[in-house]
Amino acid sequence: MEAVKGGFPSHYTLPVGMYELRCALAEHIHERTGLAIDPSRNVIVTPGSDSGLLFAMMPFLEAGDEVLVPDPSYPSNYLNCKLLGAKAVHVPTWYDDNYRIHIEELEKRVTPHTKMVLLTHPNNPTTVVYRKDNLEELARFIVRHDLVLVCDQAFEDHIFDGIEFVSPCTLPGMWERTVTVCSLSKGYGLSGYRMAYLYADDHIMDVFYGGAVNVLGAPCTASTFGAIAALKDKTILPEYYERLDRRRRLAYEILGSAPGVKMRMSESGILSWLDVSALGTSQEVADYLMEHAKIMVNQGTPYGEQGAGFIRIVTACFAKDEDAVQRFERIKAAFTELARQKGLIT
Results as ranks from 00 to 15, higher is better:
109 R>A: 07
109 R>G: 00
111 T>Y: 09
111 T>K: 02
112 P>W: 03
112 P>E: 11
112 P>S: 13
116 M>G: 02
117 V>L: 05
118 L>F: 05
120 T>H: 12
121 H>A: 07
122 P>V: 04
124 N>M: 07
125 P>Y: 03
125 P>W: 01
125 P>N: 12
125 P>T: 03
125 P>K: 06
126 T>Q: 09
126 T>Y: 05
126 T>I: 03
128 V>Y: 14
128 V>M: 11
129 V>M: 02
132 K>H: 10
133 D>M: 02
134 N>S: 08
134 N>D: 14
135 L>M: 06
135 L>S: 11
136 E>M: 12
138 L>F: 00
139 A>V: 02
140 R>W: 04
140 R>T: 15
142 I>W: 08
142 I>Q: 11
142 I>F: 06
142 I>V: 11
142 I>T: 11
144 R>E: 11
144 R>F: 02
145 H>N: 13
145 H>P: 01
146 D>V: 00
147 L>N: 09
148 V>N: 04
149 L>K: 12
150 V>L: 10
150 V>S: 05
152 D>P: 00
152 D>Q: 06
153 Q>T: 14
154 A>Y: 13
156 E>L: 05
159 I>M: 10
159 I>A: 09
160 F>W: 04
160 F>D: 04
160 F>I: 03
161 D>M: 12
161 D>I: 01
161 D>F: 12
161 D>S: 15
161 D>G: 06
162 G>E: 14
162 G>M: 13
163 I>M: 08
163 I>Y: 06
164 E>H: 02
165 F>I: 01
166 V>D: 09
168 P>Q: 14
168 P>M: 10
168 P>I: 06
170 T>D: 10
173 G>I: 03
173 G>V: 08
174 M>T: 02
175 W>D: 03
175 W>Q: 02
176 E>S: 15
176 E>R: 10
177 R>Q: 11
177 R>V: 02
178 T>D: 06
178 T>M: 09
179 V>I: 15
179 V>F: 08
181 V>K: 00
182 C>H: 03
182 C>R: 13
182 C>D: 05
183 S>A: 09
183 S>I: 00
183 S>F: 01
183 S>K: 01
